[in-house]
């Protein structure tokens, strides 16, 4: 029998090795666990602690942001238009006024989808924009290297051109591609960017945060607090194939995705919204059956309310 210290060390070794995406020794790990019932407990404690640590880092502010005094800025009271955010907002104002001043040159047009509808837009340079349901994008006939996501979700597959970067405006921020497949969501919660291939620069004239493949960024709507994270690149583009893949995403965000993808109004009780969800949601099949299946998957109760579907905590 192992002493406690040795058991902890062995459990930690497993935990570290399992983080390798190619880890394949699950049987050996199972045998290790099975040899002593205490081992599972020790491992679970460590894995839970490690998951918490991962969450601390997932909420990291962008490294490029200059620190204003006081050193630990209170994100609640941060001025919305102040400090390093000013650059981004100024940049987007320039872009907006650009349309009116240069009307003889710019030739904008908008494409809008109904909730549950999807459209694929091919641009002249070979780039493609996949627009999810309930979304609106403004493009320009004269300049196909610029797009404004007015609301909703779009997946950009960009043919890179060093001399002419592809620029997306969304929620007051600017995103510049560095040869890329990336997904953008602009909704009530704020702006979310997920990079599947290549790299994107968030607010190149402001914070200038470069996001490589597998990186995500979220800028909250009410106070523009920026958080960075990681996600599986395959999961980012999966909605196009009718599936949504999550690894610890709050259920509130999952519900927004479902609303947009299926055109079903889905709201979430506050005690459920923050709960993390891991798994895959397939968007096929009939709606009633879909919601039937969704309840157990998310471990929530689903009811039809006055304004669509409502997710609440299960009664214990």
């Amino acid at each position: 029998m192992m002493d406690d210290m040795a058991m902890r060390e062995a459990a930690l070794d497993w935990l570290i090795r399992q983080r390798d995406p190619a880890f394949g020794e699950w049987e050996a790990f199972g045998d290790w666990l099975a040899a002593d019932p205490d081992r599972a407990h020790v491992y679970h404690e460590l894995a839970a602690a490690d998951a918490d640590v991962g969450e601390w880092f997932a909420a990291a502010p962008p490294a490029a942001a200059p620190v204003e005094a006081p050193p630990v800025a209170n994100p609640v009271t941060r001025r919305r238009f102040g400090g390093w955010l000013g650059g981004a907002i100024a940049a987007s104002l320039v872009a907006v006024s650009g349309y009116t001043v240069l009307q003889n040159r710019a030739d904008p047009y908008s494409i809008e989808t109904a909730p549950g509808e999807r459209r694929s837009i091919a641009l002249a340079d070979g780039s493609q924009v996949d627009l999810n349901g309930g979304s609106r994008i403004t493009l320009d006939h004269r300049n196909q290297r610029i797009a404004t996501l007015d609301r909703g979700e779009a997946l950009f597959t960009v043919v890179h051109d060093d001399r002419r970067p592809f620029i997306v405006h969304a929620a007051g921020a600017e995103l510049r591609d560095v040869g890329t497949v990336f997904n953008v969501v602009s909704d009530r919660a704020g702006l979310s960017v997920a990079v599947a291939e290549g790299a994107v620069v968030y607010n190149p004239r402001g914070e200038s945060v470069e996001l490589g493949a597998g990186r995500t960024l979220h800028a909250r709507a009410n106070d523009s607090v920026v958080t960075l994270g990681t996600a599986d690149p395959a999961a980012m583009v999966a909605w196009k194939q009718g599936r949504l893949i999550y690894d610890g995403t709050p259920i509130g965000v999952v519900a927004e995705d479902i609303s947009r993808n299926l055109g079903l109004p889905v709201s979430v009780a506050p005690d459920v919204a923050a709960r993390p969800f891991r798994g895959v949601i397939a968007l096929d099949g009939q709606r009633d059956r879909f919601l039937e299946r969704l309840g157990p998957l998310l471990d929530v109760r689903i009811e039809r309310g006055g304004k669509g579907w409502v997710l609440t905590a299960k009664q214990k």
């Binding site: 599936r243 798994g279 157990p296």
Partner: peptide, 12 residues
């Protein structure tokens, strides 16, 4: 429960 989680498995 595990199967419910993964039954909507990836298309790829």
């Amino acid at each position: 429960e595990l199967w419910v989680r993964i039954s909507a498995a990836p298309a790829g």
